[in-house]
Design a protein around this nucleic acid. Structure first.
Lengths: 232, 232
DNA sequence: GATCGATGCGTATGGGATACGCTTTTCAGC
DNA sequence: GCTGAAAAGCGTATCCCATACGCATCGATC
């Protein structure tokens, strides 16, 4: 099936129904996208080449282009496919807990698929998967009494924070020590006195640095709560 | 000058002094990096190719490799070079205002150099430029009475939010309308009822959606303030 | 069974990164 | 000044990648 519009909207939301005529396809967009995600998860996004992908699928390279307009579009579809189906959110009694679980789910997604971080920071059009996820949380938040427009702002805020905190390094252990490894050089300590002082102090409370996502998330929720309470 | 270690640490922090011997270089790493940044700013990161860059510099392609180990490393250097010199922060009387300006400065950087967003979400080692910026804010925060370790956590939190909010689309006008354009289709409205309800409501308070960075930043600062006050 | 329309895919093209090795240039030490 | 070590500059060749084009193939509809 050929895509007519070249915009992302057409790509993500366009009519994908097949006219009855013509040869039915063995390859499907879904298979292609799923395999590409598998490669990206296992070997990194830079290993997702049309050739490698076609080999895995047992097809010719150019066959892929019957189902996907190009490489860039494939990556966009890969991203949206990660959010196919509702997000796995535990039950909660307060909107604050819903947002807490939402934040953890979002960062969990990016930690499981680090290649998606890049896509998330550049996507321009919301796809059906992402729309489904957002719709789902908004439903939960609404049911717990959070006004609609505030709910959207809250979700966007938590989203932004989670996305920004999701740097690949965050996932690994001992990352902060590595991040600040340059301070081992005494000259660097003199060049960056405040930073050196701070990190020396902070290595005592190492926990904080390692868990800065949880720390920040709680702060974000505190801030949202304060704003929403003031509104009520 | 050839780089021995292939790690980012060596790249960013390694000894770059030149032994007296040998031909002095016309090209310098600084010139190369600066030109690459100029290309990325004007034409996008994907237009920064070794060939294009060499042409601009009036040199041969392979000459670049005498000063930079490879393309990936060049991009890392480009990123860090954006933070060469102290950040431009207005004077402020409270640590809250310092953090507010910090957040705006950081997102301003990413809005001015959208290609840097991708790098920021993947960088693993802090370079001298970034260290200088962080050291600078920490100095300001410390002078206004914020304890050192809390300052670092606060800066990291604001950083994460700014980075996550810095999607390229954020800069443009009318982006939220485009982002939700799929809701124009009545079928989508039925499929995503909560989202449809919310956005219909939200388009009344369009301001909020367009300025969600400012909104979120204030919430983050509220949350940090609450936590820090409770500590004191 | 003829036809139309879609699929599968081989080949060719143009670009990109970079390994290798040769040439050129400079300065340290004589 | 001369000489040679050391570093810079860079042309060539190689390999990988995305993708335009066109042809062969296949199935459902008529």
């Amino acid at each position: 099936m050929l895509l007519l519009g070249q915009g992302e909207y057409e790509l993500l939301w366009g009519d994908r129904s097949r006219p009855g005529r013509g040869r039915p396809s063995g390859l499907t967009r879904e298979r292609i996208v799923a395999e590409a995600v598998a490669i990206a998860d296992a070997e990194g996004l830079h290993k997702v080449s049309m050739k490698h992908l076609a080999d895995r699928l047992g097809s010719g390279v150019m066959s892929l282009y019957r189902h996907v307009p190009g490489k860039d579009e494939l990556v966009i579809l890969m991203y949206d496919s990660l959010m196919d189906g509702p997000p796995d959110l535990p039950d909660a009694d307060t909107w604050r807990d819903v947002l807490l679980h939402w934040g953890r789910t979002v960062i969990g997604l990016f930690r499981a698929h680090p290649w998606a971080i890049t896509v998330g920071t550049s996507a321009r059009t919301m796809g059906p998967g992402e729309a489904g996820w957002v719709d789902h949380v908004l439903g939960r938040l609404g049911a717990l009494g959070l006004p609609a427009d505030l709910g959207l702002m809250a979700v966007l805020t938590v989203d932004c924070f989670a996305l920004g905190a999701a740097r690949p390094e965050t996932g690994g252990a001992g990352s902060s020590a590595e991040f600040f490894s340059f301070l081992a050089d005494p000259a660097a300590g003199a060049r960056f006195p405040h930073l050196a002082a701070v990190t020396t102090a902070s290595f005592a409370s190492e926990q904080l640095l390692e868990d800065y996502f949880e720390f920040g998330l709680q702060r974000v929720l505190d801030g949202l709560e304060q704003y929403i309470d003031a509104r009520a």
